[in-house]
Amino acid sequence: MLTIKNLHAEVEGKKILKGLNFSAKPGQVHAIMGPNGSGKSTFATVLAGKEDYEVTDGSVVYKDTNLLELSPHERAHLGLFLAFQYPVAIPGLSNINFLKTAVNTIRKHQGKDPVDAYDFLAQAKALAMRVGLGESFLSRGLNDEFSGGEKKRNEIMQMLMLNPSLCILDETDSGLDIDALKTVAAGVNAHRSPDHIIVVVTHYQRLLDYIVPDFVHVLIDGAIVKTGDAQLAKELEKKGYQWLMESAGGGA
């Protein structure tokens, strides 16, 4: 169970989240939609715990733990995963070495032994194929000289590998062609399970044709102003956000 109450956050002194309320249960897929600048990415980043995003009020509780007191790696150990909108490159750090380090770090936290190197490699190869990346990507530098689509596929591969219980996808659909979009969506759908919470942050309805959410929330000016089911996304596609912004009494 993820419960967020009255969340306020600012970046470099600028108030972005202004009293956001949100809750999700295992097994659910939530979509967060909203116009540019409404605070969608900030929301995703704050949940993951980036240092220069300052939470000024409110609470975030996941698995009965106050997330706001944890550093990013501790949140990851608790099962939180953020698929980044702009995954960063780390030249010279091979994808496979990175993945193995991440998997073993989390396993260690769970009191498990490190993965068997042979099994791990086989699994990584299978997942790379599944998200449409060749085996050669495993030995390349992490996101180094990857295309936009390759980076997003890589994020999904990491998600499948790490098998997180709370998954936040930050505009994973942006910059994807239709084939990549389908692959990414298939990966996310495969991750759906009664144990997992998936939060899809997106600008467009398009992705939601492939990942059908249980709930759709509209984020405007740092707060959720409307919640509905998958139909709401279709309505937004037709009507845009303007009508909601007006009723929210201002604008983003």
């Binding site: 550093s71 790696h73 990851a76 953020l82 770090t105």
Partner: peptide, 14 residues
């Protein structure tokens, strides 16, 4: 910072 945050988000200590 982005590199350290990215790795941290994957569970890796600073």
């Amino acid at each position: 910072d982005e590199q350290l945050f990215y790795l941290g988000q994957r569970g890796i200590r600073e």
